[in-house]
Write a protein that binds this DNA or RNA. Structure first.
Lengths: 109, 109
DNA sequence: AGTAAATACAACTAGGTAGTAATATAAGAA
DNA sequence: TTCTTATATTACTACCTAGTTGTATTTACT
């Protein structure tokens, strides 16, 4: 296992940061069903073409998605479904956090 | 399980974003051994007091750490060790990504 | 009271980044 | 070739945030 040392912290942070953007999470979710073109992704997420393309570059560079070119079309797909495990973990944390906040509110009444 | 819909994407992204900063990862790593004060954390991570304090607020607000006050000292601790599961997942992805890049380099020779 | 220590907060700066509009590039079709 | 389609890139704006400095707040000690 990689240690969370100074040198690695930046690289790891970069990977987390790539997921720290709503649009990129929506893109990953849209890609969950399978390979998808930029245009389709823009339509599904409601984002602009340029913006979607730029976000896909980030996900590509961080290795979350792969790309396959066919004519003028770029087909993107999830590289490793493990991403969704992370999303589930963070979702679990979210729910626990909400519970915690609810309890705090109750105890303050 | 929470769905990755438009409404949730922002909340989830916020949680990822909180981990997308080297200093905050270093703080979590430092807290791994156990409860720690702000001063100790600043010393261990080499960060300034104000900066460390500010990063801890982010981790606190996102529920990654808890705080306990004692005199003028604030003691911080990990709320849920699941965070490190996420770090391991992202580390695994990092290694796979490096492998992928190495293969690409070799195949391009 | 006065002083020191620990933390939080406010103000500021510099660098980063999301979103958009316009343009560039590339591949087909007419 | 010219037009159209799909994607990537550039330039720009507006906003956000990490880090720093200085200060306020709180507690403990003499």
């Amino acid at each position: 296992m990689i240690e969370l040392s100074d040198t690695n912290a930046s690289a790891i942070a970069e990977r987390f940061k790539a997921l720290g953007e709503p649009m990129r999470l929506l893109l990953l979710e849209a890609l969950r069903r399978g390979e998808c073109s930029v245009g389709e992704l823009a339509e599904r997420t409601g984002g602009g073409q340029a913006n979607v393309s730029k976000h896909l570059q980030v996900l590509l560079q961080q290795g979350y998605v792969d790309r396959r070119k066919e004519g003028t079309t770029s087909w993107y797909r999830i590289t490793d479904p493990q991403v969704f495990k992370m999303c589930e973990l963070v979702c679990g944390g979210l729910e626990e956090d909400l519970d915690r906040r609810r309890k705090l509110l109750r105890s303050r009444k």
